[in-house]
Nucleic acid binder design. Sequence first.
DNA 1: CGGCTTCTTGATCTCGATCAATCAGCGTGG
DNA 2: CCACGCTGATTGATCGAGATCAAGAAGCCG
Lengths: 257, 257
Amino acid sequence: MSTSVVGPKYAHRHNIRCQTCSLSALCLPLALEVNDIDQFNDIIRRRAPLKKGETLYCQGDSFTSVFAVRSGSLKQVSHDGAGDEQITNFYLPSELIGLDSIDEQAHPGYVIALETTAVCEIPFHHLDTLAAQLPKLRNQLFRSMSKEMSDDRRMLRLLSRKTADERLASFFINLAMRFERCGYSPYSFRLPMSRTDIGNYLGLAVETVSRILGRFQQQNMMTIQGREVHILNLEGLNLLAEAQRCQEHMNGLQHDT
Amino acid sequence: MSTSVVGPKYAHRHNIRCQTCSLSALCLPLALEVNDIDQFNDIIRRRAPLKKGETLYCQGDSFTSVFAVRSGSLKQVSHDGAGDEQITNFYLPSELIGLDSIDEQAHPGYVIALETTAVCEIPFHHLDTLAAQLPKLRNQLFRSMSKEMSDDRRMLRLLSRKTADERLASFFINLAMRFERCGYSPYSFRLPMSRTDIGNYLGLAVETVSRILGRFQQQNMMTIQGREVHILNLEGLNLLAEAQRCQEHMNGLQHDT
DNA sequence: CGGCTTCTTGATCTCGATCAATCAGCGTGG
DNA sequence: CCACGCTGATTGATCGAGATCAAGAAGCCG
């Protein structure tokens, strides 16, 4: 029951298979051979799409699967003692959800759809077994986890050293790059999340987010009305995002050798 | 009781093997069978200890191995465009270094010894191969990475929502637990890092760190002279660390300002 | 000792939070 | 179709935690 007729009981659902998924070059099947993809496809479970606001899983739920985003977007929220909540991640198409839950065997936060969102469920037990057999899959899995770790490091730097302007510039550049990666324009896109979510994620008050976005528009860096974003000066945003008060450094380049 | 004569060419160096290492119950060999440990032991390379201030590797160095701390401690520092630097992690005995470098195949930061420090080098290529064969090792590796991710999430929350007092309380509790985990007292220990390092890590100015530590002493939470720390009221620190403005619950405890 | 770095303590300043009010969107039901 | 209410976004005014500036104290080591 493995090789030929590939999982018709799942595939019929939306007639979706890894082999024909437009994201396969970004997702875990990346770099797998054709017949390896067949095996991988067989362990995937497709789910009915989530509506906006629906939760994929709750904080404390026991961990059994990781998920890959096929379309749409989600946020990860973790509640803390009091009612206080913190958004620790946004997930876009091709990205993996739940890799931070392996150790505790339970999810450290809620994951909630920001819009209509389709995900592929990958039972971790099967994934682990398959990873033992397929070095490329194993490697891809290690890389995904490692990437998430280094992204977190970048985020730590952002939160502990950057000003509000720098945080927002970084945020939009990061979003733009991720949209570009999955085939959308990096210059024009629709924000999946609210201002409140952005502020929460970046450690800023909503009011601050709003004010700074206003300023960015005055400076012709971007236009943003509602959730419709057009980036006009990516280079300018980039400079701002990297500009860790390195004006001295940049000035220094002129008289320094 | 063991399968004698294991990798004499490495073991002679300091006569150290995973089988006799006091940290084996915390490190990657955790949960491996005796003969599996032999295999694991064989891929490890021991290095001459690092002196205080020496670097294990530099930012941008190509990634070939992960490292396990055997004794001592290190910090991970990432430089950003300008001379601005940010400490993104401290490593204590039994912890793994370099897992965040797999994706880029290069190290995203410097790793520098805070004191005389011994590490075991684990060539990643060998580790990966062995992980394919030993499910428990693979699992342990996934868990280590996953744990680091969820620790990072905790750190993100700390940086974006906690006050300076809460950050320091969390920091000391975290240190205490990690010391306890590797067999030291959680109540009395020597800080491996400077106040400056702590401030940098927590996103605070040194002066703030100093002032708050002073206050903690006045409140009899701890004593700290130089780097010698005695924690007097772990529960109090815990409350403070978790106290995300939920003072309603703990008003009974503090009647002074 | 003297010349370092690290730590502490005090005095001010500032960025962004908070409070408050208004406005814009948007779905719902009359 | 519009009135209504609700949530999200903007804008202004004030406040405060913590950064920054400045100066001394305490280790630390050749």
